[in-house]
Design a binder for these strands. Sequence first.
DNA 1: CATACAGTTGTTACCGGTAACAATTTATAT
DNA 2: ATATAAATTGTTACCGGTAACAACTGTATG
Lengths: 336, 336
Amino acid sequence: MTTKKNKRPTLQHVADKVGVTKMTVSRYLRDPKQVSEQLRSVIESAVEELGYIPNRAPDILSNAKSHAIGVLVPSLTNQVFAEVIRGIETELEPSGYQTMLAHYGYSPLAEESRIATLLSYNVDGLILSESVHTERVRKMLSVAGVPVIEIMDSVLPPLEQAIGINNEAAARDMTELMISKGRKHIVYLAARMDERTQQKIRGYEAAMLRANLQPKSLQTVDASSFTMGAKLLLDAIRENPQTDGLFCTNDDLAIGALYECQRQGIAVPEQISIAGFHGHDITKAMIPRLATVVTPREEMGRQAAAQMMARLNGAPIEQKIIELPYYLEVGQSLGG
Amino acid sequence: MTTKKNKRPTLQHVADKVGVTKMTVSRYLRDPKQVSEQLRSVIESAVEELGYIPNRAPDILSNAKSHAIGVLVPSLTNQVFAEVIRGIETELEPSGYQTMLAHYGYSPLAEESRIATLLSYNVDGLILSESVHTERVRKMLSVAGVPVIEIMDSVLPPLEQAIGINNEAAARDMTELMISKGRKHIVYLAARMDERTQQKIRGYEAAMLRANLQPKSLQTVDASSFTMGAKLLLDAIRENPQTDGLFCTNDDLAIGALYECQRQGIAVPEQISIAGFHGHDITKAMIPRLATVVTPREEMGRQAAAQMMARLNGAPIEQKIIELPYYLEVGQSLGG
DNA sequence: CATACAGTTGTTACCGGTAACAATTTATAT
DNA sequence: ATATAAATTGTTACCGGTAACAACTGTATG
């Protein structure tokens, strides 16, 4: 019975079938108790038979509530953000909120355009992974008037509210740990230079300088990967054969570097100690276990979503910055 | 100048400021040439000053075009789907289409509910990662009348169109390769039992039986992880100390198993050979390099998106099933 | 100079829900 | 029985874009 131009059924179709107005059907769908008992089953079966699918557009149009939260991450293939997103969705789902996901490849202009798109779909709130934004973004967000929560960083002043960690302190702590184990020529390996990487480098440099050691960082514009870690390691020992420690801006680089050491016959941790950042599962499984700064990625997502829910329910911002704890996983790649 | 109840500006606000009707502003925004030259700059500056953000809801409401594609994946933390999504977005972005992402944790009922949600937002098309669906899902999709493309599998009959690989053949090929290298007690390690895993197991069993070998698979209901790979390996050798090969349903399990072998002093590949599935970057970096079935994950996403675009532009389905090639990466973990 | 025509702007109606209010029926109290 | 309240259903209007059409300008053409 599928004629070709059968567009999807509306409340009106259901109502016609039952012989009531669409308002009655609408009431039944949002709260069956508002409709007389004998109507309930009739409406139910009409809905069933027609395969009625609700349509949010009219409601969004009339009261600008979409029950969707826009989530912006720089990259989806970066495991860090996959876990953040899982945290967000875990928390959002019971409230019936949908996430609209977009990514911007670490480009501020792409972020701008994604935010515009998400706002044009009337998201009720935005969770951003960046702490630095273009002027247009600031303007758009202020005009849009939806709650905005920034994640990943707990240091820079937030637009409204931030949930993150202190990247600089974390990097400083790990560097100090490496230094305390006797390393003197620690090189920092970085890939893409986003704000958080720069914060980490500052922490690393502070620790090195305080110990009267010479900081040195190697970086590339490309995305981080295992291969890139291998390449950066080779660069590091070529430029400075004395290198006895590598602090990598994330676990991927660290793992790539570690494997390359093994391939080159460089003993880890005896000759070179290695540390990563974030504490992904694999760091615990590999041999030697990788030292890493463990960050609360999923928790960050959950708390961001929880704060978002609170604010959508009218709660005021209680804490502009929520700083989450990190910890150092010593692993086996740092040596004695 | 921000009074509290200033809702975000509409076309009408811009029009009032300029002294024209909103229709004129609407025309300017979609094609400036439709408006007289002297008005253009005036409208532009009014748009700029008010920070006008377009609103898709009314348009979606009146002609059901959202320029959004719903994408459903079982898991976001699974690297496989992260790459598929990247492929989809890469292809969709230039066309100005937005992706709405949702995941369902491998549960058919959750898939059902996510599809309903995405349809209620009026997505113009759906890309699904599953080939088996509930009856309600079939009904909803037929009623909704939007293009549906299924990915990951190229064997089961698609709802409309599928783009995937032949999992069974891929698993059979790899098993045969392992057998050809002299292994006789190959165990299949599986985690969550989805349709694709079952296809792979069938391929593995077919190859084993054809070689007069006894197939044996170990599985768990939990999600796959490095840790789970380690656990399953221990189970395998406990249940059958003769085990001389492991074919794992994905790279994570394989890597976890491989590390655990090293930890247990089991030589890979001499004592036990190991193969994974999908061919993630790390398989090329690790030592020994992991043998794996390399699947075209990003390409699958790209082609799915390209087919979606074609169909939204009115093209007919030219090929119901597009089967993409896989290949075997021998690595170093299979031995001679 | 009338007619045609392109260029520009305005008017009207519509999409499909739901809030707000009105109308009607049914139940309860006095 | 009558008034009053509660339960149920109906009516109207609105959200903010844009398609379709109308209206009006100025210019070109025979």
